[in-house]
Amino acid sequence: MDSILLKTEHVSKYFYDRQGSFFNRPQEVGAVRDVSLEVTRGTIFAVVGESGSGKTTLARTVARIHSPTKGKIWLGDTEISSACGRELRKLRSRVQMVFQDPGSSLNPKHTTETSLELPMKIHTNLSAAERRDRVRDLLNKVELPEEFALRHPGALSGGQKQRIALARALALNPELLILDEPTSALDVSVQAKVLQLLQRIQRETQLTIMLITHDLSIVYRLADRVAVMYAGEVVEEGSTNEVFQDPLHPYTRALLSAIPVITEEERALLPPEIILKGDAPSPRHVPPHCAFYARCPNRGDRCRTAQSPALELVNGGRKARCHLLGSAKHHLTV
């Protein structure tokens, strides 16, 4: 089972927006820049980063809600970056997405049953009775009682709504499930339940999941691989264990050191505290040198004068984007 399900090759997504006068030239906003990833079938791949780092845009591009400005996306053997019309519709049943806020991603006028049936009506030829059976199956799968089929979202709690959203995404047995901050709108007690449900479903069905989140503890517990994004670029990628144990990029280290933990034992597992100054660069004005330069605690002269570093293969499938990879190693391991 070591086949690649999703592959992106140098995918970029630019948005254009015109500020000020109508006659101004539209400005380029580089939301996602040159991202190449491979997601293995049956694994959970996490994308982390701060808000504005382009992780959601990447997810939406992969789901083909956006089309990429540059680059190619492959799903299995199909190239999906230029799919349109019927092809795109076929793709919808293979890639499904769960959004952050279940309150606004479910239609408040539809009962659970109507919401869950809709994808089946569009993409399959199931009869009404078969669809109803399937709705029951789905509710069971997300551990909700069957009577919830006739409820409206207004009568459900946040956690229950998110389960329904998950059930809807699973309705067509997609190959790739994209979860965009699936639990950030939920309380911890509810979050734990939803995460466990996700893990169980993933184990049982060998589903491939792309998990977008800013919560690194979740990544650590769920994901097999993780990509860290900063200012639209992937700055580090590798298996979750390796990245957490030995982060290569200074941004990853800062991110890890900032995880709010609740015990000393956990704190001991994290790199020493690094506090970053300032903010990430605006995607409108990405500097030509390393995008992290302005905030980097161990920057050197080269980082400002040289072009933005490339994503280098380090060892055993790990990648990082930093000029100081070789030299930084010493003062890291202290």
Binding site: Q191, A192, K193, L195, Q196, Y220, F244, E266, L269
Partner: peptide, 12 residues
Amino acid sequence: AIPKLTGEAYTG
């Protein structure tokens, strides 16, 4: 309920 880095099981 908090997913911990030390790897203990978490339950909601």
